[in-house]
Design a protein around this nucleic acid. Structure first.
Lengths: 344, 344
DNA sequence: TGTAACATGCAAAACGTTTTGGAGGAGGAG
DNA sequence: CTCCTCCTCCAAAACGTTTTGCATGTTACA
């Protein structure tokens, strides 16, 4: 069961290892007679030879390894991002080494150093939600791309969702249906998405010629309880909104319950749109929730693609770029025209 | 910015590379004078030297790489398993290479071969839910452990949740509260968990001296709609159950809605217990859902720990073992005594 | 026929470690 | 004083590739 090496192939094909290497290489094919090349390749295939990447990595100073260091432990979207990254990497012959720091900076340092020891060709630095980060000093000197985060220094390329755009899309869905009094359950935490989505919310209203009313936005915990509270508060207003826009699906989850508790129903009395497209919630709720998807898979892909471009052809790629990825809306059953419109 | 190698350390400390290697090694410390050793370590630390793992892997035939090959793409529990595996690996100086086949066998073959090229020391073969598998032939010859799957041939060690135990725990929670007429919304798909949980359900009833009634179990799609249907069906019986045990949290999600649609409420009229402890659902539902947790993190840890034991000390570990991991119940607000009991 | 150009193959060095087998010197025992 | 042992260190080989430079043989052309 000993692994078969290039020497075994050479011996079996009765040529030197040099020739085998050349025959199997794309770029050096020309140095070997087409006939011998064919023969060698056949023998190699028969023996099931595949080059040892440790050895070739050592020789070439190219490990074909990418480090992905994350802080999101078990966050629900982690899988999407990682899968996107993994797919893009594998397609181009690379593989991902996964390390999760859970946000612990000391641990993160050790992990980066481990990655360096393994001679990774580059690093994807991934965060669980869109944020600004000061990239660990340890990373400097290695190609890196930020995923769902932007580099405060602008040294690295990065990709994040277009938060404002997502909010605009959500609001448009509501205004297109005829709603003019829309409540916004925003996030109580001050992260970039909070401001950006508020911005998008305002822009969405403006586009529909609706005046912004600060009384219609409330800041809540980004959890079901927050959604419940926010919805209760907003729906208690004398001028009751006919639609709710939630910062995040779990809040929408809570909002549904608040609506029901008031004896109202979605979407007949209250339309709801949210952001996340968290399938387990959006498909589980009744009626199913219309939600704007955060393109985690695509962002993961983009990050790796960009990173590999930077690695393989540093000249050609140009300076770091900061990408914002468009967010598509997934329509389900939580939006309808407001009652008074229907009564027209 | 050139990487610092062992030669740089040797030069700086004015000794040979051999001596540096010995000084830094645990096992060969004795071959170098304590005084020089101290000095060398100091110099190494100052230079920030860390050995190149490609090189040492090549020399030692030990890459300190583990392959984790999965089929679960973006399944919600993937994160937990992977994190557990990653933690256990990192603690012992290993790192995980992640590859997801999405269940495609041809792709899986190529991935295993890629892992082999990278000289992984072992493989974790992970599935998204407890199942029997025929391990790909390509893996033979490499140490491997199955995660959330059991090897049909019994060649490899494996770890899965104790499905029957989980069901017993869930039922006990209900019978302890005084319920005697318990409906079971089982899974319509024939996977090991379906039979095992039914088995556990029966055992749980028996332990409480309750006779099993096949009319109280229904087989539904393991999704919210399935839960909704199942609950409707069960609650329509003339002898209405006072409690529902669901195969899976998403079904419980649907069951809640069915209960509400009948004008009943959880837990006053109907108690509900489920399996998954899917936080996003369990914490989002109102009242919060009592659910039996599947110990994904721990299973991930166990798998890697076992795998490393097999790798590091093949003599000592003995034959493959098939582990079933205990599942703890997480109590929230969906269980109460049945009405008639309270009226006593 | 002599020579240049090309085609085909190989030997050897290098990538950065770890480990084996000494070498040289100091100290102790006889 | 001699011999042995132990202590400390080092040179060299090996892990499995890739690539450079060279050697040989062949063809083409003058």
């Amino acid at each position: 069961m000993a692994r078969v090496g290039i020497r075994d192939v050479a011996k079996a094909a009765d040529v030197s290892v040099t020739t085998v290497s050349h025959a199997l290489s794309e770029t050096h094919q020309s140095r070997v007679n087409p006939e011998t090349r064919r023969h060698i390749r056949e023998v190699a295939a028969r023996l099931g030879y595949a080059p040892n990447r440790l050895a070739s990595g050592l020789r070439n100073q190219r490990s074909h390894l990418l480090g992905l260091i994350s802080d999101f432990a078990t966050s629900p979207f982690a899988g999407e991002m990682i899968l996107g990254a993994q797919d893009a990497a594998f397609e181009r012959g690379w593989v991902l080494m996964l390390l999760d720091s859970g946000g612990n900076p000391a641990l993160e340092e050790r992990q980066v150093s481990t990655l360096r020891q393994h001679q990774v060709d580059g690093i994807i630095y991934a965060k669980m939600y869109h944020q600004y980060v000061q990239v660990a000093d340890k990373i400097r000197g290695l190609p890196a791309v930020l995923l769902d985060a932007v580099d405060a220094m602008g040294t690295f390329s990065s990709v994040v969702p277009d938060e404002a755009g997502a909010a605009r899309v959500a609001v448009k869905e509501l205004t297109d249906a005829g709603h003019r009094r829309i409540g916004f359950i925003n996030n109580a935490h001050d992260i970039p998405a909070t401001a950006a989505r508020l911005q998008g919310f305002r822009e969405g209203l403006e586009a529909a010629g609706i005046e912004f009313d600060a009384g219609l936005v409330t800041y809540e915990d980004p959890a079901p309880d927050g959604g419940r509270n926010g919805a209760q508060r907003l729906l208690a207003r004398t001028e009751r909104p006919t639609a709710l826009f939630c910062f995040r699906d779990p809040q929408a989850f809570g909002a549904y319950e608040a609506v029901r508790a008031l004896g109202l129903s979605v979407p007949e009395d209250i339309s709801i749109v949210s952001i996340d497209n968290f399938e387990i919630i959006a498909e589980g709720l009744w009626p199913k929730l219309t939600s704007v998807a955060l393109p985690h898979y695509d962002m993961g892909r983009w990050a790796v693609t960009r990173l590999l471009d930077e690695i393989e052809d540093p000249e050609r790629v140009g300076p770091p770029v900061q990408i914002r990825y468009e967010c598509p809306i997934i329509r389900r059953g939580s939006v309808a025209p407001p009652r008074h419109t229907r009564l027209n």
